[in-house]
């Protein structure tokens, strides 16, 4: 009860913020919420199931291009394109998982990194179809859902919040479900879980596909809300960012991805006022996190004061 109340309160607070915040910060927050959904997907794989992937950018990009390409080439409208984007994220995750999940640990990290890199290079190689280095703009005319024009500030914020709320509550439900318990068991001790009758490959594949669906949904919505689709979103950097969000916010906590995304976003936003050394901030926080706070903010809070935090 307390748990659902907390998470619904967070959603309500985010809804209320749009009436208070100046447009600049409202747009930022819309971006943060979509990126947080991406990070929630990463958290399902890494935080809950223990799959440390370095290739989630390819799932995000699959969602983005899965949405963008039909709109660009086939003049699809936004809603069916969003669904193909979501499906593309899940499909690519499933395909990568079928191969990558035969490995574990460091090998898994490198295999996912390589698949993501190959995905990025494929986007460049087939530049005629994908827009290559330049990417492409999603026309404003294709960016409306149920008559709402998502290129305007208000509807954009509501759309981002809708995605975020759906993702947050379904994630909360998932991790408290029996399957969520199995994912954690797999992270904690794979051999023991096998001897309780769970097929590790199957459990991890399902978790990775769900993770890919989140990433794909985030990618598709990101492209739609901000009107641009490009291969940059498939670079390694976009695999590192969700990892950073999750590590900072707290791996294996439901609200950690949102907190991590918000903190990193504003950390970069504020430091960029003084210096353009944004990558330095990312790098230094990664090092600091693994050294001094491997459990992240909410992970530490859960350990010290609020053990009930999911």
């Amino acid at each position: 009860m307390k748990v659902w109340a907390l998470h619904l309160a967070v959603v309500a607070a985010l809804f209320a913020l749009q009436f208070v915040l100046p447009p600049y910060h409202a747009t930022n927050l819309a971006r943060i919420m979509v990126l947080a959904v991406f990070a929630m997907g990463y958290n399902i794989a890494f935080g809950y199931t223990g799959l440390l992937s370095l290739g989630h950018a390819v799932f995000f990009a699959a969602g983005m291009f899965g949405m963008g390409l039909p709109v660009w080439h086939l003049d699809w409208t936004a809603l069916p394109a969003l669904i193909t984007g979501l499906a593309a994220g899940g499909l690519v995750a499933g395909a990568v998982g079928l191969l990558a999940l035969r490995t574990a640990g460091v090998s898994f990290m490198i295999v996912t990194l390589m698949f993501a890199q190959a995905g990025y290079l494929l986007l460049l190689y087939f530049g005629a179809v994908t827009g290559g280095d330049e990417g492409f703009v999603v026309e404003t005319s294709s960016r409306s859902v149920f008559g709402w024009n998502l290129s305007e500030d208000g509807p954009r914020y509501v759309a981002a919040l809708t995605l975020f709320a759906a993702a947050l509550l379904s994630c909360l439900w998932l991790v408290r479900s029996p399957f969520g318990r199995v994912m954690v068991a797999m992270r904690e001790n794979e051999d023991r879980s096998r001897m309780l009758g769970y097929n590790p490959f199957r459990v991890k594949l399902i978790a990775l596909v769900m993770s890919g669906l989140y990433a794909g949904a985030a990618g598709a919505v990101y492209g739609l809300l901000f009107g641009y689709v490009g291969a940059t979103f498939a670079t390694i950097q976009y695999s590192i960012l969700p990892m950073l969000y999750v590590l900072l916010g707290g791996a294996g906590t439901v609200l950690g991805p949102l907190l991590g995304a918000a903190v990193v976003f504003y950390l970069i936003d504020i430091t960029s006022a003084f210096t353009d050394a944004y990558f330095f901030v990312v790098g230094a926080s990664l090092v600091a996190l693994v050294l001094f706070a491997p459990k992240g903010i909410l992970g530490t809070i859960r350990e010290r004061v609020a053990a009930w935090l999911p």
């Binding site: 318990r181 199995v182 954690v184 068991a185 904690e188 001790n189 051999d191 009758g197």
Partner: peptide
């Protein structure tokens, strides 16, 4: 080889479910 970081309930529930 119990799961030390999970509750007693969760440990047995994993087997039961």
């Amino acid at each position: 080889s119990v799961y030390p970081r999970l509750s007693v309930f969760d440990n047995v529930a994993l087997a039961a479910q």
